[in-house]
Design a protein around this nucleic acid. Structure first.
Length: 111
RNA sequence: CGAGUUAGCCGGGUUGUCGCGUGAAAUAUCUGAGGAAAGUCCGAGCAUCAAUGGGCAAGAGUGCAAGCUAACUACUUGUGAAGGCGACUUCAAGGACAGUGCAACAGAAAAAUACCGCCUGAAAUUUUCAGGUAAGGGUGGAAAGGCGAGGUAAGAGCUCACCCGCAAAUUGGCGACAAGGCGCGAUGUAAACCCCACUCGAUGCAAGAUCGGGAGCAUGUGCAGCCCUAGCGCUCCCCACAUCGCUUGAGCGAUAUAGCGAUAUACCGCCUAGAUAGAUGGCAACCGAACACAGAACUCGGCUUACAGACUAACUCGUGAU
RNA sequence: GGAGGCAUAGCCCAGUUGGUUAGAGCGCUACGUUGACAUCGUAGAGGUCAUAAGUUCGAGCCUUAUUGUCUCCA
């Protein structure tokens, strides 16, 4: 995941959490809100998911899962992916499937 | 062969491909988490606080000895005590004749005392008063050495034998201490206050430095817990998170020498993360298995806690065979 | 990353020089009062004092380690 595509500012995160449209999967939540500066994706993995090692593991899997979809996601939005505690320990294939599912449900995939 | 003790070490590797951070460089390459990175329990560097320069007070910490270290309350080797058949392990281990406090309930009495009892004397007529005593009774975690004999009105280390504890001279050891035993018989508690000895200024990289704007007081009765000397205008708010601090350091590894050891010295070699929504991952294959605990955030030295499995060495006890 | 506090009944809290069997309020249960309920009255149950070691004759209290939880520093 390229650095320019990352959502960084705390204010932006709070804007997405407040105004974003929600779409769900068993272990994921996707929030999307209109963006001024193009595609931005942020990850939110809280301490309830686990210790530092499992949180890092979850974030890496999510980044790898987004990678193949990058060109198909609609560009005018900011996204935040929230991981549920049950996501810890899931395999890469499962995470990949859920990420794809959640973007499809939100209607942000242009094929 | 079985059971155990101690010390050390590893805790994934290789290849392909798709990606991420940093540096050099200009598209291909180099490099990229731990033994505990964790807890933040100690000790340092570094930075700021009026120079925290000298002294004092308050407060805090440590508490057998010698050594080691940049430093330490850590570590090493010993001493003593406790545990274990043993190899070995564990220990905040100074002082209770400087002083104060506390020891509930029970008990006469908790540091000096006399309820029952024993003995003597007086009154009185089988009880009361005065004195002596600490053998016996009962209480308690603990009752002022234990037990026997002498002795006595009754008794008592009052005297003696044996034992227990403390302990002077002397001897050995750098020392803690050990041997020794003149003499003595002292309740416990200092992880209660305290005394003695030694150590410590406070805050912490969200420290702090550079850059912008504004307000109040003021040139000395101002700025530190207090004093001395030196120095300086003092106090506060807002914005911003850019750059520096940020990684070559009491650094790591091998060898030799000294030492029981912690460690020190010499010489050679190496450069080994530096992020800032926060970099190590996905897929595939192979190795006998990789299935544990777990992710750097200024940096080091220790301690403590978590941990699948693999390996090495030394030693102890038991059993059997020779 | 750094600094500090707290943990006692189902809930909110007391518990001081360490001392007999740890308390109060709300809630809960039973009985009484009422035609029935609320209120009220009486009685009762409910505690590994977060966990583990240690000091002490004796720890909720003192010491050390561990666990959980909360607050502050942008």
């Amino acid at each position: 995941m390229k650095r320019q595509l990352r959502l960084k500012k705390r204010a932006s995160f709070q804007y997405v959490f407040r105004k974003g449209e929600k779409a769900g999967a068993p272990d994921l939540l996707l929030l999307s809100a209109r963006s001024r500066e193009g595609l931005k994706i942020g990850l939110s993995v809280s301490k309830r998911v686990g210790n530092a090692v499992t949180r890092n593991r979850v974030k890496r899997l999510l980044r790898e899962a987004i990678l193949p979809l990058e060109n198909n996601i609609e560009k005018k939005f900011m996204y935040v992916i929230v991981a549920h505690p049950s996501l810890a320990g899931k395999s890469y294939a499962e995470v990949c499937r859920q990420v794809r599912l959640v973007f499809e449900r939100a209607g942000r995939l242009t094929c």
